[in-house]
Design a binder for these strands. Structure first.
Length: 567
RNA sequence: GCGCCCGUAGCUCAGGUGGAUAGAGCAACUGCCUUCUAAGCAGUGGGUCACAGGUUCAAGUCCUGUCGGGCGCGCCA
């Protein structure tokens, strides 16, 4: 939490501690209570700014009912030289603290002094975190699921960095393994269907059916004609893959760039095989006695007495080719050991959940503490809605809505914002109509509008001869209307929100924070006229506008969402 | 059959790690622009927190069971 919030809470603890001591001195309490209590923020702000549950916690050891204890504490408390101006007992024994104007004034001075650094935290300082996301299969175009993963991963990375971590964004390119063989086969069939239509096989059921495959084959024909027919099947397929795969990868890079995502590293699965990392890993696992041979394959012994549920897995197939699982262990070993990340965060579709425990277990077996150092965020799939109906997407027929299509139809601001409005593991609907709507139902516009409005006020008043100016603590303390203090209280909560969002790996907390901040600003705007007669009050309100504008812009831009000055 | 996720207002969702009368936004209705952006604000109606037990001063939140929805359980990735 921010310095000032922390200061206020320390004062609060001090007040209650002294009150309890005073109560012991005059005999009201038999002894100094020791039970640990907490500071909370009441759901209903009319109750105060903070509340403490000390009286309820202490009820047992003091053998008195909570209300009596609360009242005794109030009677023995001295607010003295603190930010608090009011303390009262309420409800079942809550102690409600109300902050005075000096606190709000100091919050604003703090925000102005820290500028873009306001809201930042040192919570994760010193931690190296790798965030891997999208990692779409390069054999085809990216789809809606990748859209959610992209928005989530990129914003999560930004959030962790804001909480002090050293963050690296990574895309894992699965350019090896079975799906590449399938890709090769599909391309080959399509190629032959084009160059020798009379003597070409049909595309097998389990091959890639998409129109993108045919298009790639056609591109090859356009560039090189039917020269491949004279080669062996193996050579022909290799040539087609060498031609098509880089094109697909480039197209992923282009799409991702349009999506405003910048990766620190594109890591190629093929590198793991070429460099010998997979072979090394298998040797290490074998040396540690984690493997055995059966049916000509090499198995990883996941099962053990402690966990009967775990199932053994194949590492090397009967044909000598390592499985995806083997490569993936090698990949994570590379992240956690070779490259020294403290934590690896992977964002996967929820359909991969079965893989999580296996992966962590294998890393644990290697002594890498996968249980704690590998965090997998499982995203539930997205249902695309339009005009109140589900837009069906089918991979098989090849008419799936691609990420590229989506980004062409919908403003990037809206996509990034809307995908970060819900927690990752909830099944969400993505409403196409809402995303393109330029109206009040679209949450991203609501936030941007609040920002533009604040900018406009600052601009207009400057033109009228009232530019933004520094304010004294006394001037800022004039901000006492409920709409003003509620707005400032929310501004004060930003750092705590950064920390909570980072701890929970949940960027949605930040988008919702922005929505609420925008709402409170709109309320303030309606309730308090900035351009009023009183010079000090006008200056203080302008100052508040500027702080709100600054925080809102910083948060939107953290997620690479634009904060327009005019709309 | 086994495992993971979810179930809160008509709809989409919050609910700070157990706290006070469960909150927003859409949708519906009613007001508010001669002054800083009406892409806004104010107000009204709307709930058996899926259901049943349990844990305690206190349960939407924790534990068990049931029902309903989504997704997994390959020498696929």
């Amino acid at each position: 939490m921010s310095r000032l919030v922390q200061t206020a809470q320390e004062q609060l603890r001090g007040i209650l501690h002294s009150a309890a001591q005073n109560a012991v001195v005059d005999g009201t309490f038999a002894a100094l209570p020791t039970g640990a209590w907490r500071i909370e923020v009441p759901a209903n702000r009319a109750h105060g700014d903070f509340s403490a549950n000390a009286a309820m916690v202490w009820a047992k050891e003091l053998r008195t009912n909570p209300r009596m204890i609360a009242q005794a504490l109030v009677d023995h408390a001295d607010l003295g030289d603190t930010y608090f101006t009011k303390l009262d007992a309420a409800g079942a024994g809550f102690l409600n603290f109300t902050l005075g104007a000096a606190y709000y004034a100091d919050i604003l001075l703090d925000i102005a002094a820290l500028g873009d650094d306001y809201g930042q935290s040192e919570l994760l300082a010193g931690q190296k975190i790798n965030v891997e996301f999208i990692s779409a299969n390069p054999t085809g175009p990216m789809h809606m699921g990748n859209a959610r993963g992209g928005a989530l991963g990129d914003c999560l990375a930004a959030l962790l960095a804001r909480a002090g971590a050293q963050v690296s964004r990574e895309f894992y390119v699965n350019d090896a393994g079975n799906q590449i063989n399938k890709f090769a086969l599909s391309l080959d069939v399509r190629y032959r269907q084009i160059v020798q239509p009379d003597n070409a096989p049909d595309l097998p059921e389990d091959a890639y059916q998409g129109a993108d495959i045919t298009a790639l084959a056609q591109q090859y024909v356009d560039a090189h004609g039917d020269a491949l027919l004279s080669l062996s099947e193996q050579e022909r397929r290799a040539a087609l893959v060498d031609f098509a795969l880089p094109k697909n990868i480039q197209s992923m890079r282009d799409t991702v760039e349009k999506y405003r995502i910048v990766y620190d590293l594109w890591y190629f699965e093929s590198e793991l095989h070429k460099s010998g990392a997979v072979t090394e890993l298998i040797a290490e696992m074998t040396a540690k006695g984690l493997t055995y041979e059966k049916d000509g394959a090499l198995w990883y012994r996941a099962s053990n007495a402690a966990d009967e549920e775990s199932k053994d897995e194949v590492l090397v197939r009967e044909n000598g080719v390592p499985t995806y699982f083997a490569a993936d262990i090698a990949y994570h070993r590379n992240k956690l050991l070779t490259r020294g990340f403290d934590t690896a965060i992977d964002i996967w579709g929820a359909d991969h959940h079965g893989h999580v425990a296996r992966m962590q277990g294998a890393l644990d077996a290697l002594g890498l503490d996968g249980t704690h150092r590998l965090k997998v965020i499982l995203m539930q799939l997205v249902r695309l809605m339009s005009e109140g109906e589900v837009v069906r997407m089918s991979k098989r027929t090849g008419n799936a809505i691609t990420l590229t299509d989506l980004l062409e139809e919908i403003p990037i601001d809206a996509v990034r914002f809307l995908f970060n409005l819900r927690e990752p593991e909830t099944q969400m609907e993505f409403d196409l109509d809402l995303a393109v709507a330029q109206g009040n139902d679209n949450p991203v516009y609501y936030c941007q509008y609040a920002h533009a409005r604040a900018c406009s006020v600052l601009r207009k008043l400057a033109e009228a001869g009232h530019p933004l100016r520094p304010c004294s603590r006394e001037e800022l303390a004039r901000l006492q209307a409920p709409a003003e203090t509620e707005l400032i209280a929310h501004l004060a909560a930003l750092t705590g929100m950064t920390e909570s969002a980072a701890t929970n790996c949940d960027p949605a907390k930040i988008t919702r924070y922005c929505l609420e901040l925008a709402g409170l600003y709109h309320k303030f705007y309606a309730a308090c006229r900035v351009n009023c007669e009183d010079d000090a009050l006008r200056a203080a309100r302008l100052y508040l506008c500027d702080c709100t504008r600054s925080v809102l812009r910083r948060q939107l831009e953290l997620f690479k969402i634009s904060a327009p000055e005019e709309m």
